[in-house]
């Protein structure tokens, strides 16, 4: 069983919003110096899912990422969690790839990695929230795609998935090879063990460039482009309800909500 897990380095979504800065030239969000990036949370869930599947089926897990300016100790986390290989597509020409170009690069990289049975991705990235790179990847590689997995089982060359549904879950299955996106309901990503961290520190990622993949970035034409980015003004007009006691403040809040017809 060969599994490829796609992971993305993102701005830490748990940083306070006050640390967000807009870069007008590149239409990207930056954070204050010294705040490290993280691996997209859902992608860590996907790594966890891959490890769970491997415990049952055996085989090999390759984590794959495309970008530039990788923070190596951050990107090595999947290795320390237990994946076998890390492939980084690192090329300054891949600065600010849009979703389509990302799909193109990932699909070429997966072809180069070779035989695979299962591709796992996080359900969406916490920066651009597109939730369509995995779907595009499945379309490009001609694979069945199943989104929002909370449970994944492999049997008889098939993948059986419980998908998170608004009021429950949906059971679906598909033949392998297939692509599955993973939601947080799969469970908390495991903490790297000391042994895992030591092993990861001795491993070097496999690094490929555009040329290694036979891709000419000049070919990429944006199908949709970001023309502006702004931080929505916070309301900044919170009316604080005050009273002599906290209990009184509670009833006064209710009266105030009544006055403005919110209840």
């Amino acid at each position: 069983m060969n599994i490829v897990v796609c992971v993305k380095q993102v701005v830490d979504p748990d940083v306070p919003t006050s640390a967000f800065r807009l870069d007008d030239e590149t239409n990207r969000v930056r954070v204050a110096e010294g705040i490290p990036p993280v691996i997209n949370g859902f992608d860590e869930n996907a790594v966890e899912a891959a490890l769970i599947v491997r415990e049952e089926t055996g085989g090999k897990i390759t984590a794959l990422s495309v970008g530039n300016d990788f923070a190596m100790d951050v990107m090595k986390k999947p290795l320390s969690m237990g994946v076998d290989d890390l492939v980084l597509i690192d090329d300054p020409q891949f600065f600010q790839l849009d979703a389509y170009a990302t799909v193109c690069v990932l699909s070429e990289a997966i072809r180069k990695i070779g035989e695979f049975d299962l591709i796992l991705c996080g359900r969406q990235a916490s920066d651009w929230d597109n939730a369509h790179v995995p779907l595009g990847l499945a379309e490009t590689l001609g694979l069945p795609s199943i989104t929002m997995a909370q449970q994944i089982e492999i049997s008889n060359s098939m993948v059986l998935v419980h998908r998170v549904f608004p009021d429950g879950y949906e059971k679906v299955e598909a033949d392998l090879p297939a692509l599955v996106t993973v939601s947080n309901e799969i469970g908390q990503p495991r903490y790297p063990t000391l042994r895992g961290i030591m092993a990861a520190s001795r491993k070097s990622p496999i690094v490929w460039t555009a040329r290694d993949l036979g891709i000419d970035p000049a070919r990429f034409e944006p199908k949709i482009s970001v023309t502006g980015l702004s931080i929505p003004p916070s309301l900044g007009e919170c009316e604080f309800i005050e009273a002599d006691t906290e209990a009184e403040a509670g009833s006064r809040l209710a009266q105030r909500l009544r006055e403005v017809k919110l209840i």
């Binding site: 306070p16 919003t17 916070s234 309301l235 900044g236 007009e237 919170c238 009316e239 604080f240 309800i241 006691t245 906290e246 209990a247 009184e248 403040a249 509670g250 009833s251 809040l253 209710a254 009266q255 105030r256 909500l257 009544r258 209840i263």
Partner: peptide, 29 residues
């Protein structure tokens, strides 16, 4: 941060605020 987005806010211990809020909401409703 929630108060930056809120229209109305009460600062304090929820366990003192919520019971009287619920009673008042029920009366008003």
């Amino acid at each position: 941060n929630i108060f930056k987005e809120a229209r109305f806010g009460v600062v304090g211990d929820w366990s003192n605020i919520l019971p009287s809020f619920i009673v008042a909401v029920r009366d008003l409703s």
